[in-house]
Each structure stands twice: as C-alpha cells, then as structure tokens.
Amino acid sequence: MIVRALVIRCAGTNCDEETAWSLEEAGAQPDRVHVNRLVRGEKKLQDYDIVVIPGGFSYGDDIASGKVLANQLLNRLRSPLEEFVKSGRPLLGICNGFQVLVKCGLLPGLDGEDFRIRVTLAENDSGRFECRWSYLKVASRRCPFVKGLPSVFPLPVAHGEGKFVPESSSFLTALEKRGQVVFKYADAHGRLAGYPWNPNGSVGHVAGLCNPAGNVLGLMPHPERHAFPHQHSHWTRLSRQPEHGVGFQIFKNMVRHAMEWKERN
C-alpha cells in the first residue's frame, strides 16, 4: 500500500526537502507540489493520504508570517481543504505551516466555526529571530500523532513570529480542557519555564495545537530537524545514537494513521 504525502510549497518555502526525506524515511511517498499547481487543479488534495505544510518564509513573511499563504488556501482551496480535514486524514503544519493553519482558522478549528481565527502566532518577545533547541512536554495525548513520544523531548525552533496568543485566556483554558493543546515548551525536566525554554513568550507556553478530531496538528518546533540522530543538538556527548531522532516519531505516526485510514476507506 502506498501512502502518498503532499508537501505544499510556494514562493519562500524552505524546509520542504528535509520534510520530504522524513516522510520517505517513515514509509510514505512524498510529493513536493507548488500551490499554483493545486490551485490550477493539476494536482488534487483528495489524491493524497497526508498533507504537510512545511516551514519557511512563505511570501517572504510579508504582511505577517503565513498570512498570505493562509489567505491563498482559504480563498482558492477552501473546499478541498475542508473535505480533507473532515475525512480525518493527517494534516501537519510545521512552523510557517502552523502559522498558516492558525491564520486561516483550521486550527484550533472548532466544530461549526468554519475557519474562524481564534488564536495567532505573533512576534517573539525577544524581538529577534530565535534559532535554538528547547524541550517539549506532551500536554495532551488526544492527537494520535504523539503516540510513542516521551513525555518530555528536545526539538529545535527557528522563527521570528512564534509567540502563541489566544483571543482570550478563557479561550485558552477551554482549548486545554478539550485536550487541543498538544505540546508546551518546557525545560529538560518538563517544567514550564521562561526564556529561553519558552523561546518566544508563548501564552501558556503553547508550542503546538490540534483540532478537535485530532487529525490536524500544528507546531512551531521542527520535527524534521530531529528525524536523524546526528541532527541532535549535542549528539557528540551521547555514547550511543538511536536509529532516529525523536521528531521522526511524529512522521511515523502520521503514516500509520494514514494507512489505517486507507484500510478503513
């Protein structure tokens, strides 16, 4: 059974190649496709089992990070996207991809809310681009793509606009109660902490969200940058290297989820 993964790219997308490697390593057949071709209908979302919006500087981060691509997807690919999400197939947004998902309202994607924007990812508190490793704590196991992840694990971030801001603190509480806050920034012991463990000042230390059904996941850190063991921030200090980096697990879970979906449908 071939699991076909779509990696959407556009002007300024950067992380698509290594995202494709990770998907391939996880057993999928990745296809890096320019959004123009999707808009023209040359390739269709429905023909894929997994969709990933990778990291980068889509449209140069002009106006706001991810806004223009979000706008493009919302206005040109709304139905195919809606259909894909409703079908329960995996949709992953990494960094810029996460920004796109919140700015077109697919995350938190509350039922009946039809692409309403409820949270955003704003400029880092430090006022600077931050390229560093941090730790993530798994805050909810609702999303099936976190299966097998340790409760605290390291991943790198690299962004200038990663500060999670909800429309209100009560809204954030509601999201947490529903298990939609998937990852939080933490220190090595899993404790919620300030800078640099929370590299951007995210409210509630939120690093990743999922939709109510759990098949749409967005996170600011880059799992594809810790899919291979020698990408680890200090692998020379470790006596043994595992077969894969911990980020790889997310891709593995998505491929498995897609396979199960295909078997059912």
Partner: peptide
C-alpha cells in the same frame, strides 16, 4: 518594495 507585490497577490486571492 517586495511587500507591495505580495499585497497585490493577496488581494487577487481575495477576488
């Protein structure tokens, strides 16, 4: 002025 071109592109997407 690259953001200017991006605004035009975004506007077209909005019809």
């Amino acid at each position: 002025d690259p953001p200017a071109e991006t605004v035009m592109l975004g506007a077209r997407d909005l019809g």
